[in-house]
C-alpha cells in the first residue's frame, strides 16, 4: 500500500514537472507512456530489450557464479582472503567504466566486450558482499553445529550458507543494478545497439518522449529482475521470510 502510494507520488510529480515544463527536453509521464506504447506496437522496443538483455543476462549469470564462488572461498579460507580481498577492494573503488576502451581494444565491439563490461561492473560488489556474509555467520550457530557433530561440509551447507544468504543476495541485487548500468554503458560507449541505441538515436533526433520511454524501460526491467531475485532467495534459502514481506 505504502509502496503504491510512493510510486503514485513520484509519477504524479513527473507528470506535473513535464507539463510545467521544467525543460523542453523533459516529457510528461503521459507523453512518455504514449511513446512507449507506440514503440511497443511497432516492435522497436521489444526488439531493443531483447538485444540489451543478451549481454546483461549472460554477464549477470557469470558474475553471480564467479562472484559468489570467489567471495565464499575468501570467507571460508584465510589464504583465499589474503589473495583476493585487496584485489576486489581496489576494483570496487576504481572507475571501471574507464576500462571499456581497453576491452574494445582487446575484444572488439561484439558481445564479448559487452558481457565483460557487465561483469566488471557487477563482480566486485557481489564478491565483497559474499565475503562479508560468510564472515558474519553468528559464532554460536557454528558452535552449535560443531557441538551436534556436524562435519565441515555440513556446517557450510546447512548453517554458514543459509545464514549468509541475505547478505549474499543483497550483493546480488547491487550487482544486478551495477550490471544494468554496465549493459547500457556498453551500448552507449561500445556500439549502439538495443536500448542504448534507442536512447542515443532518439536523443539525436530530439524525440524526448521516446528517449525517456527507453530509459524508463531499463528502470522497469531492473525492478522486475530484483523482484525475481527476492523470490528466488525466499524459496531457496529463507522460507521464514515468505509471506512476511
Amino acid at each position: 500500500m505504502m509502496r503504491l502510494a510512493s510510486v503514485a507520488l513520484v509519477l504524479g510529480a513527473w507528470e506535473w514537472a513535464g507539463r510545467k515544463p521544467v525543460s523542453p527536453a523533459f516529457p510528461a509521464f503521459s507523453e512518455t507512456m504514449a511513446a512507449a506504447w507506440a514503440m511497443l506496437l511497432d516492435g522497436s522496443l521489444p526488439a531493443a530489450v531483447g538485444i540489451t538483455l543478451a549481454p546483461l543476462v549472460l554477464g549477470i549469470a557469470i558474475s553471480a557464479l564467479l562472484g559468489i564462488a570467489a567471495g565464499v572461498a575468501m570467507g571460508l579460507s584465510s589464504k583465499a582472503e589474503w589473495l583476493g580481498v585487496p584485489v576486489f577492494i581496489v576494483l570496487q573503488a576504481a572507475p571501471l567504466a574507464a576500462l571499456i576502451p581497453l576491452l574494445v581494444l582487446a575484444y572488439g565491439v561484439g558481445l564479448t566486450s559487452k558481457v565483460m563490461t557487465v561483469c566488471i561492473m557487477a563482480v566486485p560488489v557481489i564478491v565483497l558482499n559474499s565475503f562479508k556474509a560468510i564472515r558474519h555467520t553468528p559464532v554460536s550457530m557454528v558452535e552449535m553445529g560443531r557441538a551436534f557433530l556436524g562435519s565441515r561440509r555440513q556446517l557450510i551447507a546447512k548453517i554458514i550458507l543459509p545464514a549468509a544468504s541475505p547478505i549474499i543476495f543483497a550483493g546480488l541485487r547491487l550487482g544486478l543494478a551495477a550490471g544494468f548500468i554496465g549493459a547500457v554503458l556498453a551500448e552507449l560507449l561500445i556500439s549502439p545497439t538495443g536500448i542504448g541505441d534507442l536512447i542515443t538515436y532518439n536523443q539525436s533526433i530530439a524525440d524526448y518522449p521516446k528517449m525517456f520511454a527507453a530509459i524508463a524501460t531499463v528502470i522497469l526491467l531492473s525492478v522486475l529482475f530484483i523482484g525475481a531475485l527476492d523470490r528466488v532467495e525466499a524459496t531457496l534459502f529463507r522460507p521464514e521470510k515468505r509471506g512476511t514481506r
Binding site: M141, P162, F237
Partner: peptide, 8 residues
Amino acid sequence: QDFALLPW
C-alpha cells in the same frame, strides 16, 4: 545461552 536456533 542465546538458544542458537536456525532462524530459517
